[in-house]
Simulated scan of single mutants.
Amino acid sequence: MVNAIEVSDISKQFVLRHTRSIKEAVVWLVKGRKGDLSEKFHALKNVSVDVKTGETVALLGLNGSGKSTLLKHISGVMLPDTGTVRTRGRVAGLIEVGAGFHPDLSGRDNVFLNGAILGMTEQQVKDRFDDIVEFSEIGQFIDTEVKFYSSGMYLRLAFSVAVHTDPEVFLIDEILAVGDEPFQRKCIDKIQELARDGKTLVVVSHDLDLVSRICDRGILLEHGNVKFDGPIHEAVSILRA
């Protein structure tokens, strides 16, 4: 089977600053505090992962393990310091609430903006607009500027646009924790529908019961390294242990 995602030996590090301003740096030095004013944090270390078309995969790990960073590399939001990431087909998903939304535009305008960012033509957005609004359940606010939206309203509209792009690869990062319970169930049903349709899913979540229901495979990360890659129930058991 063809790979939908190929992550080859990628590494990523960030610089952590201990001070926020020149003034703080001077105070640090005057008080005789030793050491660098910054340090490097290795978020990913030579990570290689392949995801086949139609697989449902959960990226698991404790906070700081590198799972969200890996997902952002797959989405193209981040570029690795070394290594390569390749994807096949249209990639869509929810990495951050409201990502791709302009606060001063209405929900209607942002549907077209976000749709374009996700690779849809204007005509495709027009054809699916009513379905997008209906799924989001925010019809009465669709012409309101999104800066007045709650985080839950952001989620509803962002999720609805993403799933209606008909993506081959769908990425989700803890986003379902934002909405209310009825809409969460609606999102989960839609995700399971995508899985049944043979779409490739990659999910980051601390809800281990949820990922056990919707994913077949688990990739467990620890300090930027792949600790386990296999059946989801084994990955969950290792993490819980």
Rank of each mutant, 00 (worst) to 15 (best):
Y149I: 09
L62W: 06
S75Y: 11
G139D: 09
L37P: 01
G32P: 10
T121E: 09
T53V: 11
T144N: 01
V161W: 03
L29M: 10
V15W: 09
S151Y: 05
R86D: 12
V77Y: 11
L70A: 07
T84W: 03
E39P: 07
H18G: 13
K31S: 08
R196T: 01
D130M: 05
A58Q: 10
F159V: 08
G218Q: 12
F170N: 05
R17K: 11
K52P: 03
T165E: 07
L105H: 10
L60Y: 02
V161Y: 03
I219W: 08
R90N: 14
F14P: 04
R20A: 10
T56V: 06
G76A: 06
L220P: 11
R156N: 04
V26L: 15
E122A: 13
T56G: 12
R185D: 13
S21K: 01
E134Q: 14
K227C: 01
S106C: 12
R213I: 12
G98W: 03
I142D: 08
R128L: 12
Q123S: 11
F41D: 06
V169C: 05
L37C: 09
A43V: 04
E222T: 10
S38C: 09
H73K: 08
Q184P: 00
F135C: 07
I10K: 08
L239G: 02
H102D: 10
V47M: 07
K40F: 08
M153P: 08
D209W: 00
H233C: 02
L59C: 04
T144E: 05
K67E: 13
S160K: 13
T84C: 01
R156G: 01
R156V: 02
S205K: 03
V7H: 02
R217T: 13
I74K: 05
K147R: 15
G66K: 02
V57D: 01
D36A: 14
A25K: 00
E222H: 14
V236Y: 14
T69G: 00
Y149M: 08
